[in-house]
Design a protein around this nucleic acid. Structure first.
Lengths: 198, 198
DNA sequence: TGCTAGATGTACCACTTGGTACAGGCAAGG
DNA sequence: CCTTGCCTGTACCAAGTGGTACATCTAGCA
């Protein structure tokens, strides 16, 4: 048996630690460098393995990207679960999230969202249900909080979606211009109008 | 004289019609297909020329991309000049712009902004002064209108920037999820809060 | 001990990439 | 006529791409 473990089927391998390590390293690398010019060899060098291993574990480049998408989605679900479980009201969470973006590392990590959207726009595999997996859950959770604060459900939904868009639009602005002050002033305006102080 | 016209200098060529045609076709192609997997050969085939011609006119792939960026910037400046000259108030313009996005062609074209931001984040040549060329002028024009309507200058600026972010954030959302209704409801909420009906 | 299955390294493949060399073509102008 | 500049097609190159073949290593278990 020369190549992949069993053969033509692909049980995601024993999901062993080796594979997981590679996937995590890949996600981090993509967050930091994007996937515009990503090649398996360059990636392998950067994360300390061989391109052979990436093919072995993930079958192909497409396969690897699909798993990166899945991993990011899983991470988002986890965050969301925590947010839904905690009794911290959404406004506080939103403000805290935004303040966190002053940390370049966090900002870098948020780039993953844009990378995945780019993949989705191209119609890459693993990105078909982006709305169901990445957008809708967020809207759901934040809207639920809005309803709890007395908003009509449809308004709460629209407001949640608007909040997402503002955050990502300003984040994009920040990534492009690196002008934290200007972007922050704009966010403050939005928060004043839509997110009650406490 | 084997390759490029004079030799090591590069006067952008006589800016002849041939070159312009290629550039325009390239911009359109990028708007439609993105530049994630763009290759000179595929591009040349798509716009009906040879990859040789692209190298001849633009020197290199980087050179071509830089000119695409410049072309989009020029287009934006033109739009802005019209907007600044007309007596149409910004709120009306913003609403009209957003309504226009129901047209998929317009939406496609707006993708150019994200493609350029992606280039900028990668630090590609021609994108260094993105803030000065693409963001600041918009903010300037819209903020000026805000001041004319009686807003304090700093508030007007922040509001203009927020408007840009909302538009682009929701546009990204729209590109990713294709859920026009949901996105539209969110935009309506923003418009109600920040953009006086008339 | 030997066997087996997952993991890994080396070498290779066909193909595509951006870029170049060179040989023209085609109009304008002397 | 012939020259001169812009333009264009063909052929090529070295480098890098994703992916494969095959040999090997290593641990767990009998």
């Amino acid at each position: 048996m020369p190549d992949r473990p069993p053969a033509p089927d692909r049980p995601p391998a024993p999901a062993g630690t080796s594979r997981d390590r590679l996937l995590a390293a890949t996600v981090e690398h993509v967050a930091r460098h994007g996937l515009a010019d990503l090649s398996l060899r360059a990636l392998a060098d950067a994360i300390g393995t061989s391109h052979r291993m990436l093919i072995y574990h993930f079958g192909s480049k497409e396969g690897l990207l699909a798993e990166v998408v899945a991993a990011v989605e899983a991470g988002q679900r986890e965050i969301l679960a925590g947010l839904a479980a905690s009794d911290e009201p959404a406004p506080v969470a939103v403000r805290r999230f935004w303040r966190g973006l002053t940390d370049p590392a966090v900002r870098e990590h948020e780039r993953l969202f844009f990378e995945i959207v780019a993949l989705a726009i191209q119609g890459r595999p693993g990105t078909e249900r982006l709305r169901e997996t990445l957008v809708e859950p967020w809207v759901e959770v934040v809207a639920a909080d809005g309803v709890r604060r007395g908003l009509p459900p449809d308004v709460a939904r629209a407001q949640a979606r608007l909040g997402m868009a503002v955050t990502r639009g300003l984040l994009l602005d920040l990534l492009a211009t690196d002008d934290l002050e200007g972007v922050d002033a704009a966010m403050e305006l939005f928060l004043e109008a839509f997110v009650p102080q406490d």
